[in-house]
Design a protein around this nucleic acid. Structure first.
Lengths: 248, 248
DNA sequence: TTATTTTTTTTGATATTTGCATAAAAAGAG
DNA sequence: CTCTTTTTATGCAAATATCAAAAAAAATAA
């Protein structure tokens, strides 16, 4: 069996080049067609869907690892990446690589560092690698059944994003350069999983003072052409750093 | 040298019983004398101060590991624990255990999972172990110089706590059962690093509806005896779970 | 015992932010 | 040109936050 050979060969090298017992799983968010989507990969090994992930080279830190893994998958560099949690349950990788010897590297107990990534959907060129049959975007409310604890990892990523929305802006990494206010609102609504009031969204967003209104509108669609905006990159970055709502 | 022997002996066993390349560092917060304090340990190896930490048994998940490590240090069980970040820079453990062979287990490259813990100061009985000379509480604005990246880990822990204060209550794990409103406010002020308005703090705290006012006041001190409160445990737990401020 | 001092607790006045509703503006369709 | 639909802007009441200060309570000093 060709595939099994590849795994066994790679496994031998793995002991030398990767950190043992530690992997990375990424929840990659994109926005397209008024939907928030997530990247999932169909594994050759067991025909199950998984979050894209990989191992950590002995020569890199975890963010570099996540960055490398996602670059290989998407062709995108400079992805917005945020680690959010370690998944370490004893039985989380149980039953994986069942057809292989217990001594195989991939079959050891693995802890995963969860990252979430925000990418501009339109710049991504998906890549299917040696271990996978397919790599696709799926709407977050229509995810296929995921292997191991990957559904749980996804839930935690979305939960983190929802919390962070209260003090961080979002959109710069998900939307094209020019976008409309209703598009931005839609993005917020899907991530939060609830409708927001239009007028208040406008006022609040403008009060944040991170948007620049352009002298164009998006013509062509039916009905009134919405105004186009772009982010004020400097103010956006500052808001990311300092936080948007004072809180206490 | 006695100490070196111990380390070398332990190191041999370590390969068998611990997960390699991964450790845990804990930022343990306590509240005493109107000050927020943190637990630090003086290492025998190099006479530097460090955050309490340890390694992960192959038979436990990371929260169990953190719990075990802190129980050994403080005698406290059921500590409030929250992982907040992985520290993985390549050179973070550089220069540690210099006197030992490179092959020694402790000298491998280590990633650390950072946990923060909240404990009731009065219930803690500090324990000095084989690797340390001292174990002390230090006020967070008077920390000694810490080894490796431990100051950075502390900063991230405090930053996390500050953010979480915007949607989580705090105090149940830090204060004694009965406490006064000014004490609670002091706790918030120290963590946030700024003064809060008295009247507003009162109103906001009471609106959260997680406090029960007792029919007692704290007599004995000079001046007006402040009212005593305790937390409504059920409502507090609910607030922890669901979050305090709606945000969006 | 009474006045003084100090700290806690409560209250007011004002500004800001929300929630909900609705009006005005703009573009394509017919 | 009118109709329909969607975007954008506004109005107003309710809820919150800010700032300031008054009232209440206890200990101490006189």
């Amino acid at each position: 069996m060709e595939f099994k050979k590849i795994i066994e060969e790679k496994s031998k090298q793995a002991w030398e080049i990767y950190l043992p017992n530690l992997s990375i799983d990424c929840v990659v968010f994109g926005f397209h067609d008024a939907l928030v989507k997530v990247l999932v990969v169909k594994m050759k090994e067991n025909n199950l869907w998984a979050l894209p992930g990989g191992y950590i080279l002995k020569t890199e830190n975890i963010k570099e690892a996540a960055s490398r893994i996602l670059h290989q998958r998407t062709g995108v560099t400079n992805i917005y990446l945020q680690q959010f949690r370690v998944f370490s349950d004893l039985n989380r990788s149980e039953g994986f690589f069942e057809a292989f010897e217990n001594t195989i590297w991939n079959k050891q107990r693995f802890l995963s560092v969860g990252f979430y990534a925000l990418v501009d959907f339109s710049t991504v060129k998906l890549v299917v690698d040696n271990f996978s049959d397919a790599c696709e975007w799926k709407a977050i409310d229509e995810l296929p059944e995921l292997m191991m604890d990957h559904q749980y990892i996804f839930d935690k990523a979305l939960g983190t994003l929802r919390k962070e929305l209260n003090y961080k802006p979002i959109g710069f990494n998900l939307l094209p350069e020019k976008f409309t206010m209703p598009e931005l609102q839609k993005l917020y609504e899907i991530i939060l999983g609830k409708k927001l009031n239009r007028g208040n969204f406008f006022r609040k967003m403008l009060r944040y003072d991170i948007l620049i209104k352009l002298d164009e509108s998006r013509k062509g669609g039916a009905h009134k052409a919405p105004d186009l905006y772009k982010f004020d990159v400097e103010k956006y970055q500052l808001a990311l750093k300092d936080g948007l709502n004072e809180g206490w």
